[in-house]
Simulated scan of single mutants.
Amino acid sequence: MTAARLAPALPPFDPEVAERLDSLMQGRPPLRLFSTLARDPRLFKRFFAGGLLDPGHLSLRQREIVIDRTTALCGAEYEWGVHVALFGRRAALSEEQVRATVAGAPDAACWDASERVLLRLCDALHRDCDIDDGLWAELRGFYSEEAVLELLMLAGFYRTVSYLCKGLRLPLEAGMPRFPAA
């Protein structure tokens, strides 16, 4: 793996950044992505202002399926591994489902119908930056208009996160999962 393109900020952090990191990391060292963004307190704050990890119109499981699939499609092993490690069990994702976010077809038997449409959404957005009317109708069969709006924003945000992780060449966090072997 190549070296990171930017060195992370080191403590002491800007007071607002330090407060946010303490809240997020709960005594653990900050993730490399977070400490790299902390180089610029304005960008750090803007990044977290755009985050969608709060309770919204999606369940934790739905959110994590979209994040894992989007980051996998983008090849962002760093962010995929962080989310699998920190949220995979809490989202009740089985090992088979975790693997399927990277290499599985959207119609794999390990997903229910409402989850298959999430995977098809991620695939369509990644491929076309759009969703056709048929997929829209399927989404609306399972999800409210507000939830679909959140899904679009979530996939877009994690595409941006993927750009950051890959463009900065962030080294994988210690102990985090790797993409499954093909």
Results as ranks from 00 to 15, higher is better:
22 D>F: 06
115 E>D: 10
23 S>F: 11
102 V>E: 03
69 R>E: 01
24 L>H: 09
122 C>G: 11
106 P>R: 09
34 F>N: 13
23 S>K: 15
43 L>S: 12
60 L>K: 05
26 Q>G: 07
52 L>S: 01
138 E>K: 14
59 S>E: 02
115 E>Y: 05
126 H>N: 13
113 A>L: 14
117 V>P: 05
89 R>T: 13
87 F>W: 10
35 S>N: 09
30 P>D: 03
112 D>L: 10
140 R>S: 15
150 E>S: 10
40 D>N: 15
148 V>Q: 08
125 L>K: 13
53 L>N: 11
75 G>T: 10
142 F>Y: 15
78 Y>H: 11
106 P>V: 07
21 L>N: 04
126 H>V: 10
30 P>L: 04
62 Q>F: 04
57 H>C: 11
75 G>E: 08
34 F>P: 01
42 R>W: 08
55 P>N: 03
122 C>A: 15
131 I>V: 15
78 Y>P: 03
52 L>D: 00
30 P>E: 02
132 D>L: 14
93 L>I: 00
37 L>C: 08
54 D>T: 12
142 F>T: 10
114 S>C: 12
91 A>G: 03
49 A>I: 00
25 M>N: 11
29 P>L: 14
148 V>W: 08
127 R>P: 03
36 T>Y: 04
149 L>K: 13
57 H>A: 15
123 D>Y: 12
144 S>K: 13
59 S>N: 01
133 D>T: 14
136 W>S: 14
61 R>C: 00
73 L>Q: 06
115 E>P: 04
90 R>H: 10
64 E>H: 07
23 S>G: 07
84 V>G: 04
82 V>T: 11
93 L>S: 01
133 D>P: 06
27 G>N: 09
89 R>I: 10
84 V>N: 05
98 V>D: 00
87 F>V: 06
67 I>V: 15
99 R>W: 13
78 Y>R: 09
116 R>M: 12
42 R>N: 07
77 E>L: 09
60 L>C: 02
147 A>V: 12
118 L>G: 05
49 A>C: 01
26 Q>E: 12
57 H>E: 15
147 A>E: 04
131 I>C: 11
58 L>T: 00
48 F>L: 07
111 W>I: 03
46 R>P: 01
125 L>S: 11
137 A>F: 09
130 D>H: 15
29 P>C: 07
29 P>E: 12
41 P>W: 02
30 P>Y: 05
102 V>F: 09
139 L>V: 12
44 F>A: 04
48 F>R: 03
97 Q>I: 01
93 L>Y: 00
36 T>K: 04
141 G>P: 06
147 A>R: 08
108 A>S: 14
117 V>Q: 08
119 L>K: 12
102 V>D: 03
69 R>S: 06
113 A>Q: 11
131 I>T: 11
72 A>T: 08
149 L>M: 12
103 A>C: 11
88 G>D: 07
71 T>Y: 04
35 S>P: 07
27 G>I: 09
63 R>W: 00
107 D>A: 14
60 L>A: 05
73 L>V: 10
63 R>C: 04
61 R>Y: 01
35 S>C: 08
58 L>S: 00
108 A>E: 13
114 S>M: 06
96 E>Y: 03
